[in-house]
């Protein structure tokens, strides 16, 4: 269990005892590669924050096993804490201390060698250097969030947990934070992003895990879209489409065809391979094709389908 940045086997967390027991996380098995940007998606109460807290050695595990940055949870918790950075759901800074003092305090707790250097590096990187002497209580929410990100990075952790990094931020601040996260991903750090912002997850994450107490799906956003919805191609025609439905349905690789005015909406698995054949077929049948495009399903569509399926199952 060492080639992965994070590996869990049946990771489980229960709170309480007896009939009051709450099953927060149930049998979660994950393998996250070094340098991967990994999204944890799920509704409120799904166990995302609990998972992050377990993996950052903030709370214990009830069952299962997990190795984070080469150290086993429950046995080497102090080592795990040294190797991970965490951006908690709320920034939590000391309001009466300056930005610089806040970071210097945490840098000392993490045994950072060059505290002034590291503090300056991240304050500059996040555009807070000019405000370093100001009390954090005077900072906007976006500035506090940026400062909390700086705090999580001071000790250069190879694994970084980000719990709702853009929650409650205005669009400009959210964009700034998102760009910074993308930059961190390019640096080769392993990032675990816990978010309700599915567009953000779609843009930033290499893979996502959708879960509600237990794992519902795990793959790249593109693969999840393809698995759940297939791929949808739209043919824009010069004439009404209904007459061309049957010729297209005759192809075995086509899952469904729907005519909407001058458009034909076709679902199939591999448009790159099969579009030329469909175009030939349509032309042979007398269609005049003006434009061909793909309908891109959002990660939100994927997420909602998975959660609704799980709700029906429950």
């Amino acid at each position: 269990m060492t080639e992965f940045a994070i590996q869990t086997e049946n990771l489980t967390k229960h709170f309480g005892r007896g009939k009051d027991v709450v099953h927060a996380v149930e049998g979660l098995s994950l393998e996250i590669r070094p340098g991967e940007v990994f999204g944890l998606l799920g509704p409120n109460g799904a166990g995302k924050t609990t998972t992050i807290r377990m993996l950052s050695a903030l709370i214990g595990i009830s069952a299962g096993r997990a190795v984070v940055a080469g150290h086993e949870l429950g046995k080497e918790d102090m080592d795990v804490r040294r190797k991970v950075g965490i951006l908690t759901e709320t920034p939590g800074m000391y309001d009466q201390l300056s930005a610089e003092r806040n970071l210097a305090f945490f840098a000392a707790l993490y045994d950072v060698k060059d505290i002034p250097g590291q503090v300056e590096k991240y304050l500059r990187m996040l555009g807070l250097w000019a405000r370093r002497d100001d009390e954090v209580g005077e900072f906007s929410k976006g500035m506090r969030q940026k400062l909390a990100i700086a705090r999580a990075l001071l000790h250069e952790p190879p694994v970084l947990f980000l719990d709702e990094p853009t929650s409650g931020l205005d669009p400009e601040a959210a964009r700034l934070v998102r760009d910074f996260i993308a930059e961190l991903g390019r640096e080769g750090r392993t990032l675990i992003l816990c978010t309700h912002n599915l567009d953000e997850a779609d843009r930033l994450c290499d893979r996502v895990a959708v879960f509600k107490t237990s794992l519902l799906a795990l793959d790249t956003p593109a693969n999840l879209r393809s698995q759940l919805f297939g791929r949808t191609v739209v043919f824009h025609l010069a004439q009404p489409g209904p007459q061309f439905v049957e010729p297209l349905k005759a192809n075995a690789f086509v899952h469904s065809v729907e005519a909407l005015d001058n458009k034909l909406v076709v679902t199939l698995d591999d448009p790159e391979a099969h579009n030329p054949a469909l175009i030939r077929r349509l032309v042979e049948a007398g269609a005049e094709i003006r434009f061909v495009g793909e309908v891109r399903r959002s990660l939100e569509d994927v997420y909602l389908r998975l959660i609704q399926k799980e709700d029906r199952h429950d």
Binding site: A57, L58, I86, T88, G92, A148
Partner: peptide
Amino acid sequence: TRTLEPLLAAP
């Protein structure tokens, strides 16, 4: 002040 969680996350 919600500083306890980052504090407890530190080594």
